[in-house]
Design a protein around this nucleic acid. Structure first.
Lengths: 339, 339
DNA sequence: TTGTAGGCGTTATCAG
DNA sequence: CTGATAACGCCTACAA
């Protein structure tokens, strides 16, 4: 339980001025070898650590970046946060974290709080980007990078997944395997990412000259249980379908479990492709065909972009799209066309 | 892109002294109504936000707590972090987060960094608590709470799960169902928590008057895949067993999938109980019997304890054990004893 | 009701 | 080589 000691105290004990102590501590400027040693030994025995607050006040640099997220759970976000932290620490920055529970007021307040803490930049992850966000960000004297949403139109840099694009690709893959009766299990209808994925699904569908049946497009949340429930409802409709696109792997597993419980087989009876692949996918008894993309990379790119903007001082708007892969494994199968 | 403005600047524009501006901003002390309005309008139009650094320097309070974790991923930790953040923000504190990738040097360095940032307390989550940690913590002028390990013996407050106890209870439950040939799938042998759970398993086993067979105790990691691999190895031994205790639900699912792939049935052929229940458990086709405890609560308790210690200024050593439940569901079954 | 001034712990500039 | 001293932005007596 050593108490914190100030540079003045060290100087006093060494019988020198604080300027000299500072020089010794930072190895800069000339110092006579004997006094240097004297000071060093005092620093050692007192356990002196410079007060970063004072230091930061003096050079107007906090080496802090702020992070605003809904919460810290979920399959992907923690990985993204990890990516952010990794990059940021490598650059000598630290992360001040805040969570908002998705509450708009809380989000806006967090921008204020982080600003008053003089963070040098902010990474903001949100499920839905609103005008209020844009307004507050515009007034901020520091760069902001949005994660998970494309905010290019709002004049703000962002790093995000290509939701519509990969949903389109995945759907095309199913169509290419001769499937024509497709279902889609989305997330909450309020989720922007979910609706973009739905858009991709529908676009591929329509380009194939078909009109999607509203009844085949369901909404739930991102959980395994939700997949199970949605599938139960779908089966109750007694409408034929040969393939399914799900918002993520958890929902796919729920759907698969439900199908298996009804005595159906994957992929013989139904082909399934998931639009997100996390560790949960490993739990599937059928190797899941899925679109995958790296949350870690999402965080890394966001952090790199932010640090770059902090360094260059300019706020040019950049847009970074994270790559994805469509992996076809055992849960999808070519449909034999019966004439 | 409003620039940050200082209190001096506001005072200048309002034609008053900074003391008056301060009074207005904090609503304290008497201020003439007209000058108050004048100042308020200037604060409004300049978007003045007090510089927390300067403020904190002046009152020697940062309202910051530090968090040191291995990384931000995993099933449980993000929930714990969420719990921490929730409590801490409610109390007007903020969290400075650092991750160490399990590297000892990095852990020690993070203590120094956080200290120099003058956080008022630290929450440290680690997989193995070492002497080096103890030494550095003892020298810190601020309270530290360790999460996930019992560090009472090291004279440091901690909040943790009752690993040995619940492993013992779970094993007893199986023994109570007449199972006598038990296997145990642990995590990495270096994991302290894993070895405590193994201890509980072995103790229950020995209390029943039996000696555990080393071959039936396996080590891997915490993943679904690891469960699958360990089960494959176990089956290769061709040793009979009727029940299995796994380090967590993911490993249980891997083991179950492997058993199902070998044409065996759960729980008819093997009863399984997992020593941790997270969202992954939902993916199991057989409702998993498992021990469950709240990671969120772990974080909440740790944060509450830390805030309390910061407030009271004393560093009394406290120990908080998180409660658990043993839920017996469909993956375990009473064994019919054949005479 | 308002202003002055010292202090918080550093950094940095400029004399000695 | 070394030491004053003015910032940095704010708080808080204490004076006026």
């Amino acid at each position: 339980m050593t108490k914190d000691i100030s540079i003045t105290e060290v100087a006093k004990r060494a019988g020198v001025s604080i300027a000299t102590v500072s020089r010794v501590f930072h190895n800069r400027g000339p110092v006579k070898e004997s006094t240097r040693r004297k000071i060093e030994s005092i620093i050692e025995e007192t356990g002196y650590t410079p007060n970063q607050l004072a230091r930061e006040l003096a050079n107007k640099k906090t080496q802090l970046i702020g992070l605003i997220v809904h919460d810290f759970t979920g399959e992907g976000l923690p990985r993204a946060i990890n990516g952010v932290n990794q990059i940021v620490e490598d650059q000598g920055y630290h992360v001040l974290m805040t969570s908002t529970r998705g509450n708009l007021d809380s989000e806006l307040r967090n921008f204020e709080i982080l600003r008053s803490k003089r963070v040098e930049g902010i990474i903001f992850a949100t499920r839905s980007f609103k005008k209020e966000h844009q307004e507050i960000i515009e007034k901020l004297p520091i760069p902001v990078v949005v994660m998970l949403q494309d905010t290019t139109e709002n004049g703000i840099s962002s790093v995000f997944f290509q939701n519509k694009q990969f949903a389109y690709d995945a759907t095309k893959a199913l169509l290419g395997m001769n499937h024509r009766q497709l279902a889609f299990f989305g997330g909450p209808s309020a989720s922007v990412n979910s609706s973009h994925r739905k858009d991709g699904f529908i676009q591929a569908f329509m380009e194939a000259g078909m009109t999607p049946d509203d009844k085949m497009v369901k909404h739930g949340d991102f959980s395994i249980e939700s997949g199970y429930i949605q599938m139960n409802k779908l089966l109750a409709l007694k409408k034929p379908f040969t393939a399914l696109v799900t918002i993520n792997d958890a929902v796919a597993i729920g759907a698969i479990n439900c199908l298996l419980d009804h005595g159906m087989r994957i992929p013989e009876d139904v082909s399934i492709i998931a639009l997100d692949k996390t560790v949960v996918a490993d739990a599937s008894r059928v190797q899941l065909s899925a679109v995958s993309y790296s949350y870690q990379d999402l965080g890394i790119q966001a952090a790199k972009l932010l640090v770059k903007q902090i360094g260059s001082g300019n706020k040019t708007i950049e847009q970074i799209k994270i790559d994805y892969d469509v992996h076809l494994q055992d849960s999808t199968q070519r449909l034999n066309v019966k004439e």
